[in-house]
Nucleic acid binder design. Structure first.
Lengths: 259, 259
DNA sequence: TGAGGATGGCGTACGATGTACAGTATTTTT
DNA sequence: AAAAATACTGTACATCGTACGCCATCCTCA
């Protein structure tokens, strides 16, 4: 029922935390906990039981510490979520793309992002808002921008195109993650849900009033049975995204030739 | 800190509620509350103070009722959110598009959806998950599918293209809504945030390590100052989306000519 | 060889949330 | 007039993030 947001804490504190710039003093007892350990434990819980299971109490329990002990290292839960995200960004694959052409490069970026969401479905429900400007995001941004090298787009266009591509992937991941979460919660797949509710819907729904919706909905529903739905959505959308970017590139190349 | 999800309740109960199919019996005291009144009050609170302010207690207070009185009419908060959404869908503009060509039709659909998100920014953070299969969504789906009439796409392609288009708009709305919410919470715009944190970031961030990110980020940051950022993102992305769909249409038309 | 001070960690407690449960009040039906 | 069904209310509970104050530990300086 509850969903979390990132980037809500004090900005300066968050930045120094993300870049691990806190000067470690000598006085005082040895820290038994570390930021990295806390982040790792939180990610583990999120992967295993979803974000809503990531409570300060649960994270502390996983580390055999008292709940309030976490606050020595992390200002609040919002910062913890930022740290979790950036940590995963930092760990993403950055294989040097073997210049297979820009379409393959961008498709690989999209697939890598989808894989990240797939491994950690909770990211899609947390990654909204201002992204954490940590080393992970920076490395990711740098790497992904390189995929646009030599396409003739200017800086603003490149950033917009990347944002467009990533937004598409995130949207797919969100829908896919929700579908999976629901299937788990209901112990019933989307297809099963439809079958269970079809007769009920038939009683209230007048096909004559919504002819197009009836026709298209039936065909789309049949085609999207099971987990195949999101895969198809991703494949279809990715082609549209790349075609759209291709048009932009063509126009820019043409303009450069004119000028 | 908390975000809500829809579609979590009992499916059959939700459907009868969405379509207002509950048989009203005669016995017992006159109802002082109605589903519509509850939904309207909840929407009012969400518009004024955000979804997180929509608590059962707050909605009840707005209706001068006790918190638990709501549960007579609405099974749970998840259903209430479903009802809020479907109610807004039902109220959307459905001007018959004056056949200006399919690009204008789809652009109008996108703009109408963006306007809805703009008037009720909280929708973007609630509209995840299985959509409420109520009269509002049905009417919306029917209307929007009509925008694809005569393009030569089959049913599955039409549904996929519409989902693609709407997903793009929702993503824009989510980012825009978050930016606005942050600006309100911090009493500081995104631009102001950047200025305040730039020196701090400069201390931890090594431009030599991320040359592309530095160059593109600076240009994109300058271009996206203020609220213009999301407008630009929407305009840019919409062109890409329509270009991508255009390619698909071209291919289908060509195939039909071949066959 | 202490004394002082900074720091890590903990126990308790508070306000907010959704909602279960057990009534009470009000109306129609028998 | 009694019974049954319905609308509403008051209280209570588990769970969450986290403010606050206390203690234990360790370095540093006298």
């Amino acid at each position: 029922m509850a969903r979390e947001r990132t980037g809500a804490g004090d900005a300066a504190a968050t930045l120094t935390l993300l870049w691990r710039q806190r000067p470690q003093s000598q006085r005082g007892p040895r820290p038994g906990l570390t930021v990295d350990a806390i982040v790792a434990a939180a990610i583990g819980i999120a992967d295993a039981k979803g974000v809503e299971a990531v409570t300060m109490r649960a994270v502390a329990l996983a580390l055999s510490a008292a709940p309030m002990a976490l606050y020595t290292h992390v200002p609040s839960k919002a910062e913890l979520l930022d740290l979790m995200l950036d940590s995963l960004f930092l760990g993403m694959s950055r294989a040097e793309p073997a210049g297979d052409g820009w379409r393959d490069r961008l498709a690989a970026i999209a697939r890598d992002n989808l894989a990240l969401y797939s491994a950690h479905p909770w990211i899609a429900s947390v990654a909204t808002g201002r992204p954490p400007l940590g080393p992970g995001l920076m490395a990711k941004y740098e790497y992904e921008l390189r995929g646009f090298d030599g396409l003739g787009l200017d800086e603003v266009e490149t950033d917009a195109a990347l944002t467009f591509l990533l937004g598409f992937v995130e949207n797919c991941a969100r829908i896919g993650g929700d579908a999976r979460a629901r299937a788990q919660a209901d112990a019933m797949s989307d297809a099963g849900w439809w079958e269970a509710n079809a007769p009920l819907l038939a009683r209230v729904f007048d096909p004559a009033r919504y002819p197009t919706a009836t026709r298209v909905g039936a065909a789309a529903g049949a085609a999207h049975q099971g987990a195949y739905g999101v895969d198809h959505m991703f494949a279809f959308g990715l082609e549209r995204v790349l075609d759209g970017i291709e048009r932009l590139i063509e126009r820019r190349t043409q303009r450069a030739g004119d000028g």
